[in-house]
Design a binder for these strands. Sequence first.
DNA 1: TTGAAAGCGCTACCAT
DNA 2: ATGGTAGCGCTTTCAA
Lengths: 340, 340
Amino acid sequence: MANGLKEIADELNLSISTVSRALNNTGRVSAETRRLVMDTAKKYNYSPNRIAQSLRQKKTNIVGLIVPDIGDYFSEVIKGTESELSAHNYSMILADSHEDPLKEANYIKLMYQSQVDGLMLATVSDTFAWTDVYESSDIPVIFFDNEPADLVCSKVVLNNIKATEIAVDHLVKLGHKKIALICGNTKESTAKYRRDGFMEAMKKHNLEVDQNLIKEGLYYLDAGYSSMEELILSREDHPFTAVIVSTYRMSCSAIHAIKDYGLSYPEDFSFIGFDMEDRDRLFSPSITSVLQPGKLIGKLMVHKLLQSIDNVELSPEEEDSVSFVNPVIKLGQSTAAIKK
Amino acid sequence: MANGLKEIADELNLSISTVSRALNNTGRVSAETRRLVMDTAKKYNYSPNRIAQSLRQKKTNIVGLIVPDIGDYFSEVIKGTESELSAHNYSMILADSHEDPLKEANYIKLMYQSQVDGLMLATVSDTFAWTDVYESSDIPVIFFDNEPADLVCSKVVLNNIKATEIAVDHLVKLGHKKIALICGNTKESTAKYRRDGFMEAMKKHNLEVDQNLIKEGLYYLDAGYSSMEELILSREDHPFTAVIVSTYRMSCSAIHAIKDYGLSYPEDFSFIGFDMEDRDRLFSPSITSVLQPGKLIGKLMVHKLLQSIDNVELSPEEEDSVSFVNPVIKLGQSTAAIKK
DNA sequence: TTGAAAGCGCTACCAT
DNA sequence: ATGGTAGCGCTTTCAA
């Protein structure tokens, strides 16, 4: 199957260049010739070799996407990314770093070698030591989820401050005053901002913040569980009527703790989780949760990326800009108005 | 950044060919030269252009994966595929057909144009009319999930017969005799085999099958709901002590029906779902479910694919073979022993 | 309007 | 052990 331009050219006694121009509708070609070429192309089931095109044009129409884990919220991002890319005639190479900075580094290298036109990256490297590669190359990179410390770059991130703020707002509207927070390690930007958002919202509503009701889970694995446990065990001294958890994993394990202690929401206290989308509505009671619009994040990234790719030169303020995405709150049965 | 072989060659006054051989460790090169080349490559941060390599070698080390929907079970398949591919130095172009045969067709074309070395496809096209493309090309294709009708091809599929069989076995062990089944449209191979597995298992245990307890959901959307509804409403005449549902979507909507009618499992009857993995253990009561090992399916596909890619010629029986994957049953609280 | 030729970056063959 | 050269399939000048 030597299915190339040459075959068509030979058949019609034309040159390869003419055939190319006819097919791509570029340059001047007589209508007659064009038709002929199109017809034989169809006849031979011609299919352009994108690799050859890419090499010649120095453009692959492929972008890379590296996530720490395929599943949950990232599935949504992947989905949004994929459909938006495909609408613009791009394809996507997907890689899963499995939360491993070393793998991530290798994937980045691979992406560059593959000559992707752009890269979307949810980095898991605290230091993002690949700055050299990143900066020495001119292919645009968009970060999302984690923000690499000390690096000026393009990113699309959740408005994390608002994320906890809308949770507090909702609870306050229900009459809650003593609100607890379980958040991640505030050395990570997301956790920090989410805690800040909580603080600001409490202040906005003139509510006192009991430091004992703020649990910062330092360890990844079961921080949600132990934090919830601490809150439950000390609730005589430090009473609360509602809890907000600020990551998905912690929400899950906090729920396990609540069940293990024989408590339930909203009876014992109201509960607001994070990223508990439950699209198939299988939880009972359903859970009020702050949600990141994953698909939208994907779409936005693609937009920014394609803009960078198309306009070779962007103004600096556009080049390394941050796009914020608004969280939404999904109301469920796990939150209820407080009894006066 | 003219970061090519030429740069290194010029620096060392060597030919491009020698540099290439040194870097790829192919052909004879003096140890001395090798070291020198390696060093300057590192110095210039040389990164091979995979596009050029691909064009030259007629091999991209990229495979395509087309799924009907990114999420749920397919996320697992993607995950398994990705990690296995990456372990073998392949990358993956991922595409989401959104259950649309037309999109699927376009993606297939795109994959071929991209010169992928192989393709993995969960087709949504009943007819799989792309046989022409498929057969006229020599790149290997592996099907999974749906089996295209009337097409001899390589596939990796769940042992669907076993899937319902183990569900029946479990229920029989618990003392159930009157077991209902909700399955999909038996014109689709998966649904048909799952029903067959149910029948055979019942027969094996010498249990009578009440045809009224077998609901074949002909419509995609809410077949699970209405089927469950019918079972509930007619249970005076056609009593049952357990239900098996044979797809994920139907399991979800069947559960909704059960709740809407104020019933609960395992009190009113035992319930076995499909693909309800609930990895974060958030359902209560937890649900007994048949699971497809998505990651394993991904891994197996990659194995088969790479074998086809490496061994140019396979024996026909290996070429178009079917690999069966065993389902597993996850025990939860939705099934209980029957009270004598 | 068409064709010839160069060349994208690399590998692999054949000389030396 | 090394270099010259052809060529992968295509686009894109430049001439005709």
